[in-house]
């Protein structure tokens, strides 16, 4: 199993940390992982993206241009990455602010209204964990047990009190995700 993922959205949406938690969880489950961020001052308030690879084998290139899954959190990122999903792959997006939804018919498309849900629940902080839950429902590349271990490893100890809230958000995401178009 090798899963090549891109997560893309605005800086401040927790894109990088969602990728980090995913990578940590994979590592705890004894998989090979890589996490490669876009970097530099262009990220100031602009877009941020990170590619994450989780694999049972040695990871060759951490720099990838074709993805098994694209997790998309704004229109700019959708425009940029829709064409980079491998045929038969998955595109998961949050419809908030999306005026031009994905159009491809050779991939599986899911949506998750995580921004709305997080606002409703007053849980803006764990918005990204809701999205992560949606992804895990579609592609269970790591199990819940290891998400918890990943959180323990990636969060500083003083934030460990927030882990249950994060796990609940993952659960919420699993229930929230909807298929738009499947092959």
């Amino acid at each position: 199993m090798t899963e090549e993922i891109i997560i893309a959205g605005f800086g401040g949406q927790g894109v990088l940390s969602m990728g980090k938690i995913l990578a940590y969880s994979g590592a705890m489950q004894d998989k090979e992982v890589s996490w490669m961020p876009s970097y530099g001052p262009e990220m100031r308030g602009g877009t941020a993206n990170v590619s994450v690879i989780i694999s049972d084998e040695r990871i060759s290139s951490p720099i990838i241009s074709q993805f098994d899954t694209a997790i998309i959190l704004n229109q700019q990122s959708l425009d940029k990455f829709e064409s980079s999903v491998k045929p038969g792959g998955v595109l998961l997006y949050d419809p908030n602010g999306i005026t031009n939804p994905p159009k491809r018919t050779d991939i599986n498309i899911y949506k998750i209204a995580a921004t709305e849900k997080a606002a409703d629940l007053g849980l803006a902080k764990v918005f990204n964990m809701i999205v992560l839950g949606g992804f895990l429902k579609v592609k269970p590349v790591v199990t819940e047990e290891f998400i918890e271990k990943g959180l323990m490893k990636s969060l500083p100890e003083r934030h460990h009190g927030m882990i249950p809230e994060n796990l609940k958000a993952v659960q919420t995401g699993k229930e929230l995700v909807q298929a738009v178009h499947t092959l």
């Binding site: 890589s34 961020p37 990871i59």
Partner: peptide, 10 residues
């Protein structure tokens, strides 16, 4: 290089 510097791995 910038890629190996920025990538996070085990």
């Amino acid at each position: 290089d910038g890629a190996i510097g920025q990538v996070m791995e085990k």
